[in-house]
Amino acid sequence: MILVFGGTTEGKQVISLLNEMQLTYVYSTKTEVNVELGEFGQYRNGALTPETLIQLIQEEKIQRIIHAAHPFAMELHQTIDIAGQQEKIEVLRLERNFSERVDHELVKYLKSYTELLATLTRDFQGKKLLALTGVQSIGKLKPFWKDNISYFRILDRNSSIDIADKSDFPREQLILEQPKNLIGGEEKLIDQLNIEVIATKESGSTGALEEKIELALKRKVPIFILTKPLLPKSFIQVQNVESLNVILNGNASFNLNNSSFNTIER
């Protein structure tokens, strides 16, 4: 049995591959989502601690983990790392495609929300912010938005709206989108809302980062990008679904020292 962490485009790609290969799996997401699994998959949702993940591994007799959740799911990264090492379970991390970082005066890469907040507070008082950093960032950036008009684009889900409400964020400044519509539409927002600074994440091609940067440069709007977090060394990084297919077919050898794999010639 394979345990898949998803909730992303990459997660859906893994589902398709496992169904094609007729491999049984458990598909796991933090919040409940509508997903079609087919006859080989079963679904669960809810946050996991290392202890509850270990219990799940033991109960479902999990032999391998495919981690295809969001690059910024840092707590999940740590949970999988701890449980995987304790249970001696191989963790395959299906990565997104990340383009080279852009060297431009309007494009800045920051390592943390603390650094982002400090930069906004120091240099952008009185400026309108468009935050594409997700609902969890609302509380982290409160010291800025409580004194400056800011707009956060989040998923149109009750759970997301509840998180925003707990931070007392103005509902009229929430931009609610369905998951399939979450990418794109920024140009219209910038023009309609007179946006003067953008914050986003280094979420790769799946998150349309290249398009966001291109738009910011076109509109001459500064864009701040939170860099993707480092992955645990125990993860075996897989660059695409084709490579994952090779691994699952047993046509690869692993070098755990550098978390990579090599294709075996047959």
Score class of each variant (00 low, 15 high):
Met1Lys: 11
Met1Arg: 12
Ile2Lys: 08
Ile2Cys: 06
Phe5Gly: 11
Gly7Glu: 05
Lys12Ala: 13
Val14Thr: 02
Ser16Lys: 15
Leu17Gln: 09
Glu20Trp: 09
Glu20Gly: 09
Gln22Ser: 12
Leu23Gly: 03
Leu23Met: 14
Ser28Thr: 09
Thr29Met: 08
Lys30Val: 14
Lys30Leu: 14
Glu36Tyr: 11
Glu36Leu: 09
Glu36Phe: 11
Leu37Trp: 09
Gly38Asn: 03
Glu39His: 11
Glu39Leu: 10
Glu39Thr: 11
Phe40Asn: 13
Phe40Pro: 01
Tyr43Val: 03
Arg44Leu: 15
Asn45Val: 05
Ala47Arg: 15
Ala47Glu: 15
Ala47Asp: 14
Leu48Gln: 12
Leu53Asp: 11
Glu60Ser: 09
Ile62Thr: 08
Ala69Asn: 07
Phe72Trp: 02
Ala73Ser: 07
Ala83Ile: 06
Gly84Cys: 04
Gln85Gly: 14
Gln86Met: 12
Lys88Val: 14
Lys88Glu: 14
Val91Leu: 04
Asn97Phe: 13
Glu100Ile: 10
Val107Ser: 04
Lys108Thr: 12
Tyr109Arg: 06
Tyr113Gly: 12
Leu116Ala: 07
Leu117Ser: 13
Arg122Met: 10
Asp123His: 05
Ala131Met: 03
Thr133Asn: 04
Gly134Met: 00
Val135Lys: 03
Gly139Thr: 12
Leu141Phe: 02
Trp145Met: 03
Trp145Leu: 04
Lys146Ile: 15
Asp147Met: 08
Asn148Gln: 09
Asn148Arg: 08
Asn148Ile: 05
Ile149Cys: 11
Arg153Ala: 05
Ile154Gly: 07
Arg157Trp: 07
Lys166Arg: 14
Asp168Lys: 12
Phe169Tyr: 13
Phe169Pro: 04
Arg171Gln: 12
Glu172Thr: 12
Gln173Asn: 13
Leu176Ala: 11
Glu177Ile: 01
Glu177Ala: 11
Pro179Gln: 06
Asn181Ser: 09
Leu182Ile: 14
Leu182Trp: 02
Glu187Tyr: 04
Glu187His: 08
Glu187Leu: 05
Gln192Pro: 00
Gln192Arg: 14
Ile195Leu: 01
Glu196Ile: 01
Val197Tyr: 00
Thr200Pro: 00
Glu202Gln: 06
Gly204Leu: 05
Ser205Asn: 15
Thr206Glu: 11
Ala208Pro: 03
Glu210Thr: 10
Glu211Asn: 13
Ala216Asn: 00
Leu217His: 08
Lys218Thr: 10
Val221Gly: 01
Phe224Asn: 00
Leu226Met: 07
Ile236Asn: 04
Gln237Ala: 12
Val238Phe: 08
Gln239Ala: 14
Leu244Asn: 04
Leu244Ala: 03
Leu244Tyr: 06
Val246Trp: 14
Ile247Leu: 08
Ala252Val: 02
Asn255Lys: 09
Asn255Gly: 10
Asn257Gly: 11
Asn258Val: 13
Ser259Thr: 06
Phe261Met: 08
Asn262Cys: 10
Thr263Arg: 15
